[in-house]
């Protein structure tokens, strides 16, 4: 599992946009993942309030769902988002780190169904939830290996 987790950490670090957002993988395995996104001025969606933009929350949730799929025991070689729905419950508190938690609740041969929540430091009170379907790729030449 350690190798898998190291691989996943490298996977996140290899994504330029994940780096640009300062995403950190803090937990992964068994079809579950947790990723944090630090507060930053450039991801603010409303200057008047300093609240971060929903789009940034959606980016961390999408990445987290993808990481959860990659960590599933069925060992997919790659994944891509088919669709993702985000419900925004409340504004994230300015200055606080966002933590996304994603869980695969069904993984088939071709499709994984994933749910995620995003919280700030008030962990009992989600900022947003997400639900999506993702491709499950298992053959060589798929998503992560198609380099040509």
């Amino acid at each position: 599992m350690a190798d898998k987790s190291k691989m996943a950490q490298q996977f996140i670090q290899a994504l330029p946009h994940a780096r640009a957002l300062g995403l950190k993988l803090i937990e992964i395995g068994n079809g579950q993942a947790a990723i944090t996104m630090p507060y930053a001025k450039h991801i603010v969606g409303d200057l008047k309030t300093g609240v971060i933009h929903g789009g940034a929350v959606s980016a961390v949730m999408d990445t987290c769902c993808g990481a959860a799929v990659m960590s599933h025991p069925s060992t997919p070689t790659g994944t891509a988002t088919i669709d993702l729905r985000i419900d925004y419950m409340r504004a994230a508190t300015p200055g606080q780190t966002i933590t996304a938690l994603a869980t695969c609740y069904h993984v088939g041969r071709s499709v994984a169904f994933v749910r995620a929540t995003a919280t700030d430091e008030d962990t009992g009170n989600p900022v947003a939830t997400a639900s999506g379907s993702f491709t499950v790729e298992t053959s060589p030449g798929s998503f992560t290996e198609r380099r040509n």
């Binding site: 994504l15 994940a18 789009g55 999408d62």
Partner: peptide, 23 residues
């Protein structure tokens, strides 16, 4: 370059696409 999600394809990050549509 910072909008890339998958550097191997390469492809735009799904979160960027979503954010672009939301904006």
């Amino acid at each position: 370059d910072k909008l890339i999600g998958n550097p191997f394809l390469p492809a735009l990050h799904g979160g960027v696409t979503s954010a672009f549509l939301e904006v």
